[in-house]
Design a protein around this nucleic acid. Structure first.
Lengths: 112, 112
DNA sequence: CTGAGTTACGAATCTCGTAACGATC
DNA sequence: GATCGTTACGAGATTCGTAACTCAG
């Protein structure tokens, strides 16, 4: 009988945001999207870069912000800008993604 | 209309394995489970440690192996043993999880 | 009206638990 | 028969795309 106290219960309660992961871990996919947006400072462009719909990118950024409890970008008329939190996340996200690749490579090397 | 050439199409075709992510990135959740199994060399124990059902742990390990294209453990009568690939993955998985935490901390620090 | 981001909604997919098996001791 | 891992299956949650909406220029 429903023994899932870990995963949040409320789920789809507020607005639309589909928040991708929720409190368990920083999903690499979100990080990849975040970096694309950080680079282009433009959601539309980032969406093309990662082959996702604009709305998906918008959602992923919001999920990441919700997950971390902090705004990563400031939405201004002239474009998006990284906040202090976004600036702090960027280099670590890059490391994380790099390590992800290293893990794959290491396993391939070890297994043949 | 249905424009999803990226995500695999076949999906639930073989056996039961629900393979968690599939070719996009190393899911931190899988890594956490992997480390728990690597530590106890026992799926039942690992399941208790990470608060999941035995079957979920079994699936996650298989997902990870499928994702990486290599066996991480040898299932023998006496228990599970790490393969060369598993041995190679372990330290990187630990780093990955550590970095995950660092990212959170850095964002918290920057945002207040 | 155009360009950019966000919200609504729905279909396909994924996650994880219960239950049923299979194998080893 | 007890223990441990795997497979089957189903309920609920997640992901992402289309479409509609909002706001600045």
């Amino acid at each position: 009988m429903s023994n899932r106290p870990i995963a949040a219960v409320s789920s789809r309660s507020r607005s639309c945001s589909r928040r991708i992961d929720r409190g368990i871990s920083l999903h690499p996919r979100l990080l990849k999207t975040f970096l694309a947006v950080a680079r282009s400072r433009n959601i539309t462009r980032a969406a093309e870069a990662v082959h996702l719909a604009q709305s998906s990118v918008s959602d992923q950024i919001q999920s990441l912000e919700a997950e971390l409890g902090a705004a990563l970008f400031t939405r201004s008329k002239t474009g998006l800008e990284l906040t202090l939190a976004g600036l702090a996340l960027k280099p670590i996200a890059e490391d994380l993604l790099r390590l992800d690749g290293e893990a794959r490579a290491a396993v391939q090397a070890a297994a043949g």
